[in-house]
Write a protein that binds this DNA or RNA. Structure first.
Lengths: 216, 216
DNA sequence: TCAATAGTGTCTGTTAGACATTATGGA
DNA sequence: TCCATAATGTCTAACAGACACTATTGA
């Protein structure tokens, strides 16, 4: 039976200041591409909704459920191992520490993928840059407790630009999104860092004026 | 031949401080729903890319090309007149003045649509709220010249909240996105308003710190 | 003691929001 | 003259960015 579409997953996890993306074997060997983003070929009208399908595929692939997932979009260009006319992509993040020395997780920057999936990955990273402002992506990219330095590094990964330490912490405090725990963590030389947990109290009340960052 | 998917369009245009959405006849008469968003049922792998397909369908439907269009996403829930497992939706805006007393354009707020398309419309309006910051949607929702009051009203429609007049104009001036023309337009009683045109000079250089507007 | 990192205090320039004021037309 | 709307000036509070400083650990 001919496939209707494929459902593709961009599963990301930060490690060493870079995004790692989960891949599976089974892509066509043509042109030296042996790995691909996890996908599921759908050949009949699915009984479940797309998000539920994506969630179960992610859980099956990684062995754990992701805490945040959203749709990236539908893609029709380029080549895809399932050879479907379109692919619907979802993105999910897994906490820092998920990536072990597993060859399934590879650096997103240098990932070699079928051309459609390469476009999916690029679109995903561009989408995260905007979505980070409205969704708690960074917090779900970390374990339940984390240092503020780790949090800032994830934000810098998401936004693809450096952030100012003091300003970052002030804004974070004003937003009342995290709470300190009583635990501290020493790494290497310097002063130990306090561990925080994600505990949003309220949405930032002051909705500020328009920003005009219009791409031309 | 069974359909692979449908391509749906959310064609929006502002009028009287509200969004109007373009609909076409031909939806099933069941449950009193007689109109639907314009769509195209795709039964074989398309020779064109999705954006090109959407663009040509929009041009054919409205009789004019839109100046801005982007994908909303893929939708699988609910009912759809094409009865496809998924629908890929695109959104485009048409300038104020496109909507005449044509029954094809109806108020988006009170639109009665097949359930999947209703979800598409809702997701679209939510998406625009975030996209307006990064893409010149508002300018493409107006004719080539417009008053700053019209521009602010479109932004208020997009953002779904009122804006402060003086701050809006200051930010607009700082962003160097518009240029005044020599024309003025008098409407009703008060002082005539100067007409402006969209003429972006530069991207706003100062990329400011993180905003934490995290939805919980 | 030194190096390295965590965390904070202060200063300054920018800007959003409030408010007031002037400008300019029609009724 | 009065009213409605456009456009702009001023003040203030909030905030981002820079910088410096203190705090606390390991080497």
């Amino acid at each position: 039976m001919r496939n209707l579409f494929s459902l593709d997953l961009v599963l990301l996890s930060p490690r060493d200041g870079e995004w790692y993306v989960c891949t599976a074997a089974g892509a066509p060997k043509a042109r030296g591409i042996s790995r691909a983003l996890p996908f599921m070929a759908v050949s009949k009208a699915p009984s479940e909704a797309l998000p539920a399908l994506a969630k179960s595929l992610a859980t099956k692939t990684v062995g754990a459920a992701s805490r945040w997932m959203t749709q990236v979009g539908a893609f029709s260009d380029g080549t895809h191992p399932a050879d479907t006319p379109i692919s619907v992509a979802f993105v999910a993040v897994y906490p820092n520490g998920t990536v072990q020395d597993d060859e399934g997780w590879i650096r997103a920057e240098s990932a070699v993928l079928p051309s459609r999936q390469k476009a999916v990955l690029k679109a995903t990273l561009g989408m995260l840059k905007h979505a980070v402002e409205h969704e708690p992506i960074a917090f779900h990219s970390l374990p339940s407790t984390f240092t503020l330095r780790e949090l800032q590094q994830v934000y810098e990964l998401l936004l693809e630009r450096p952030l100012h330490k003091a300003s970052f912490r002030r804004s974070l405090q004003a937003a009342q999104l995290v709470e300190p725990t009583k635990a501290w963590r020493a790494e290497g030389r310097g002063r130990p860092a306090q561990l925080y947990k994600f505990a949003p109290r309220r949405r930032r009340g002051s909705v500020r004026g328009v920003r005009f960052e219009i791409a031309r």
